[in-house]
Design a protein around this nucleic acid. Structure first.
Length: 206
DNA sequence: TATACGATCACCT
DNA sequence: GGTGATCGTATAC
């Protein structure tokens, strides 16, 4: 069997429809260069946030200084602070002028385990990266990297290693933590690897 | 200038 | 099951 070399995802990958990008991001490798070395995690859970009709999307009320990044070029990082405490990492998708992004909600640690354990102040594997705020803390991702072009960045990028994810390995559900968004809270815009031990949780609403 | 609140998490009962 | 932490952002005034 041939071993396919890992390869960085390009602008062409991210400029497509947000749901397609979200599904195909499952199984891909989120990579981070830090002074302590390279940290890698396999993406296990994502959510879509799309445009003006999605009341859970920060861009639904138009362009503001914070959300302008989502209106820009696909393949850039949209990183924001939530609850004054944690950071959330999104990747901008689709065409310029159409605000949309994929939230990375969980990863499975692949390498750089010690660095992640240090950053998270725990060694317990299933508490390391099983949520959007946890994985950014584990990988040292903060607002300093907001707007970073992950197509060309030496600090943050995404690779694929040839691993194929079959459709029947992907489960779909409503998004987590957006009950305030009315009917949008019920939309099945969360995708995750069915058998992964690193999915954040089952959403409360169905 | 003031106010309300959130795409979360850890810790508590 | 519930709650506090903690601050940038959007909106109201």
């Amino acid at each position: 069997m041939t071993i396919m070399p890992t390869k960085r995802l390009s602008h062409r990958f991210f400029i497509r429809d947000t749901h397609v990008v979200a599904r195909e991001l499952l199984g891909k490798l989120l990579c981070r260069n830090t002074p302590r070395g390279k940290i890698v995690g396999r993406i296990a859970e994502v959510e879509c946030y799309i445009g003006e009709n999605d009341l859970a999307c920060h861009a639904s009320r138009g362009r503001t200084p914070r959300t302008s990044i989502m209106f820009g070029e696909a393949g850039h990082a949209y990183i924001y602070l939530i609850y004054g405490v944690y950071h959330c990492l999104n990747i901008v998708t689709d065409k310029i002028g159409k605000p949309a992004a994929v939230l990375i909600r969980s990863i499975e640690p692949v390498s750089g385990l010690e660095a992640m354990q240090l950053a998270r102040r725990t060694k317990v594997l299933n508490r390391l990266t099983t949520g959007p705020g946890k994985l950014t803390q584990a990988m040292g991702i903060t607002r300093r990297l907001n707007g970073e072009n992950i197509v060309s960045s030496s600090e943050l990028w995404i690779e694929h290693d040839g691993l194929k994810i079959a459709s029947n390995e992907i489960d779909v559900s409503p998004r987590v933590g957006v009950d305030y968004a009315g009917p949008c809270a019920l939309w099945p815009w969360r995708y995750y690897l069915r058998h992964s031990e690193f999915v954040s949780k089952t959403p409360h609403s169905k």
